[in-house]
Structure formats: structure tokens, C-alpha cells
Nucleic acid binder design. Structure first.
Lengths: 251, 251
DNA sequence: CAGTGGTCTAGACCACGTC
DNA sequence: ACGTGGTCTAGACCACTGG
């Protein structure tokens, strides 16, 4: 049938239709039309809505679901990914025991303050230098023993009125809290790793000697359009645990 | 048109056609019909060959190219990924200077022996315990200073007659050597990381003090069907460099 | 059973590379 | 001009989920 009838939606020349469909779907989610965890319209409904054919809808939804943003379930529908789901419990937590056993950590808030980001933090979070930040430190225990310290920096502009109390209420995961309380959805992360010596503060919290090796993970969490939303320094005691890197594909 | 005419290729019920097409394409590459770096037949040719429609071919090639196994180039054709390409130089080398500068390391072979794998190595490489292995150690220099030590274990069954001389000839990358000399193609890797103390051997090679923190990367390289083909222990001096983890998607 | 996503077809035109 | 992959259409049947 070739190009067929004209589509309802307009795109600049050179922009594929399915990209515009992807953009519109993410827009609708961001604007709250379809909440995290909820279903989006069926593929045939989306055809009508956007005036494009099934194949185009499928290509758009295929990619969004490969990016982890939508979740398809045959026979049920397509859902907006939510951090409030089992599948997310270990998606961003990569520490496991050396024998491979994975468990979810018990989290304790040990510090909380409002501060201003230094130049490094401002650069990594793409805020102006000296922007207001929320800074807090969590201690993570596995099988009752402390294994990880997380130092977390959030731009206050994205997380207004985040309180110490809210963090002490033990949200299932931080990224779920970001999503539900602040409509900030973490899509992916970038990480850099180093081996460092434990300082007095970390050694005390982790029950190790000063100077012992510690795995440092510098993580930037990114939302839509690669906007950085969280800077996190993790310190992992790898005497009995390991850090699992995501599988590296050849591409 | 619905199910249309019957396809030439047969599949067990429940196995999608495009999966069978994927399997056949990888088979043809593995059997040497289309060499790494070479072009595979055009999509229309593949339609005839497999007796399926373009859409099905495209879905198969889409996935193989997302897995990094094929490379599409509009207007030119589709090629079998080869480790002998610029894009691969940093695909599996994740160490960069702290300011983000990336360079390709100068490699020196410092040990080479034929040995037998211990139980750990045998388990990770899925060989029988005590299988013959080739073991060698490389020292990697960046900007003239040693930064990484690689200890590499290969099952001799996959790499027969690999000689010390061949490794000293400075192949562009090891994975290129595996591919060209032994038809072993690395598709992806799995990595686990720890922070450890430098021992005397590593401290000497890296020009650091014994006991200084060192990043250990335990990597298993996998080929088709997730067959493990290489076990590598990397030790990275992260005083001036960092280890970049692959981006973590939400899925 | 009706509705969803999953697979598949047989075409068409477009954008790009090469000659 | 020609062949490649990239996009898109308008359908069809299949497999699964839920009432």
C-alpha cells in the first residue's frame, strides 16, 4: 500500500513517525496521563489515537520496552514501569555475597542535611555551582552486618521538601520514593568504580580497619532525556561480597 | 493475508520463525560461510533463502544487531561484527583516566604457561576439573605508566597451539586474536568487582606499595549460546584511573 | 468468550552509499 | 541508476489472560 493515508500526527521531515510516537508516549507518562504501574491504551487504541499503523506503534513500544520504560504482558496489556515492582528490587542494587546469594539490604539513615553542592557535584548533576542540595548517608546491612555506605546528593530543585522523616520511614527503594513522591523516574545509571582506603568514618560504620580496601562506586542516576537526578557515592566492603557489573554487550 | 504461504524453513511448534532465522544466521557465521567483517546477503536475498517475509528477516537481524553480533549500514549492507574494528577498541576495555581521557594501552606479556585449571576456574569456564589451560599475564601501560595487570585463563581445548610467541606479536586486541586465529567470537562479558590489597607481585609490576587498594575485576567472556571462553582477573590501579561500568538500564 | 500482545505477510516509498 | 537498509502500511492468525 506504500505510504498510504496521511498520519494524523505531524513530524518534521527526517524524523521517523515511530520516534514521534515514542516521544508522545513518554510525554503522556510524564504529564501523569498514565501513572507508573498503570496500563497504557492497547496497541489498536494507540493506532487510532496517533493515526498510524500497528507496525509503527509496535516499533515505538518495542523500543520503550527495551529501554525498560514500558512493560508488555501478553494477554494483559502494556504497563508503565514502576520502581514499585519486584523486578526492580535488584535492577539497581548490584551487591551480592561471594557465593552468589542476593538479598535485599536493611537500610539505616545515618546523616541528613541540606547543603550546597561543590563544583564536582554541580557538574555531575548539571546544576549551577553552589545549587542547593539534599545530602544524606545510608548504611546498608546484609544478613545483619553492615556492607555498604551510600552517600547521596539530590538537587533540591527536583526534590523540594524532602524530609529526614520521610527517609526514615523506610521506603521500599529510594527510586520508588523518587517516583511516587516527586514524579522523578530513574531510567538508567552511569557508574565509575575505584578502589580506595577506608577512612575513619567509613571504617567505623562498616566494622573494618582504617586503610582497608573499599570499593567506591560513583553513580549518576538519569531520568528522561538523560537528565541527571541523583549523585551517589557507594562504598562497598568486598571482603565477603562482590559488586556485579551489568553484562557488557559488544555494541 | 494472514499466515500466507508456508515457509521453507521448519520450526518446532511454539518456536517463532524469526528465532529460527536468527539461529540459522549465527550458524552460518560460526561455520565460516560469512566471515567476521564480511557482509551477509541483503535482506531480500535472505527472504528468498529462508522463504520468509522481509518483516521476519528484519526482526531477526534487528535483534542480532542489538546484540552486537551484526552491524547494519544503511545503503551498504549488513556485516558480521569483527573485533578488528575501531568500535571495538573500547568496547571491552573500561579503564580511563579520572579526567575522562581514554587511550589504548600498551600491552606487555610478563608470564606464559600451560597449566591445569583449579576447581574455581573449571567451574567458571564450564570445563571438567583439572582441564588443561593456557595461563598468561599481561601488564597494561597507559601514558607510559603501568595501570592494569591482566591474568588470563583459556581452556586449551578452545585455543589449541596458542603460543607465547603469538601473544608477544602484539595483536591489536586479544579478542581479535581469538576470533581470527581460533574462530572464537566474544559476544559479551560478565564481571564481578572487588577492592583488594596489592600483593608483592602486583605492587612491583604497578609501582605501588604492598597493601595499597587495588580494583579486582573478575571477568568471564562468553561466546555463542553463552559458552564461557575466557576467564580474566584484572587488577586496576585506580589512583589516577577509573573503571567505567556499562550503563545500567532499568530492565 | 473477548481483548490483549506476539508473530507474520506482501507489499510500498524513503534515505543513503556506491559506481 | 541501482542496490542497500530504514520506515510504514493494512491487514491476518496465534498465544495468552481474564472474566
Amino acid at each position: 500500500m506504500g505510504v498510504g493515508m496521511k498520519s494524523i500526527i505531524q513530524v518534521s521531515p527526517g524524523v521517523p513517525l515511530y520516534r514521534e510516537v515514542k516521544r508522545r508516549i513518554t510525554e503522556s507518562v510524564r504529564h501523569g496521563e498514565w501513572p507508573p504501574g498503570g496500563a497504557i491504551p492497547s496497541e489498536s487504541k494507540l493506532c487510532e489515537r496517533f493515526g498510524v499503523s500497528m507496525g509503527t506503534i509496535r516499533k515505538a513500544v518495542d523500543e520503550l520496552s527495551a529501554e525498560g520504560f514500558l512493560i508488555r504482558q501478553q494477554g494483559r496489556g502494556t504497563f508503565v514501569a514502576s520502581h514499585n515492582q519486584d523486578r526492580y528490587l535488584f535492577a539497581f542494587f548490584h551487591v551480592a555475597r561471594q557465593d552468589g546469594y542476593k538479598e535485599y539490604p536493611k537500610v539505616d539513615l545515618v546523616e541528613f542535611e541540606k547543603t550546597r553542592g561543590d563544583t564536582t557535584a554541580a557538574a555531575m548533576l548539571r546544576t549551577e555551582p553552589g545549587a542547593r542540595m539534599v545530602r544524606f548517608v545510608n548504611k546498608l546491612e546484609l544478613s545483619g552486618a553492615p556492607v555498604v555506605i551510600d552517600e547521596i546528593l539530590l538537587p533540591e530543585s527536583l526534590f523540594p521538601r524532602l524530609t529526614e522523616k520521610r527517609l526514615r520511614d523506610r521506603p521500599a527503594t529510594l527510586y520508588q520514593l523518587y517516583q511516587e513522591d516527586f514524579r522523578v523516574t530513574v531510567i538508567r545509571t552511569e557508574e565509575r568504580l575505584r578502589a580506595i582506603k577506608a577512612d575513619a568514618f567509613k571504617a567505623r560504620l562498616l566494622g573494618m580497619k582504617v586503610g582497608e580496601p573499599l570499593l567506591q562506586v560513583i553513580r549518576v542516576a538519569l531520568s528522561f532525556k538523560d537528565q541527571p537526578v541523583e549523585l551517589r557515592y557507594s562504598y562497598v566492603d568486598t571482603r565477603r561480597h562482590e559488586y556485579y557489573s551489568a553484562p557488557m554487550a559488544a555494541s
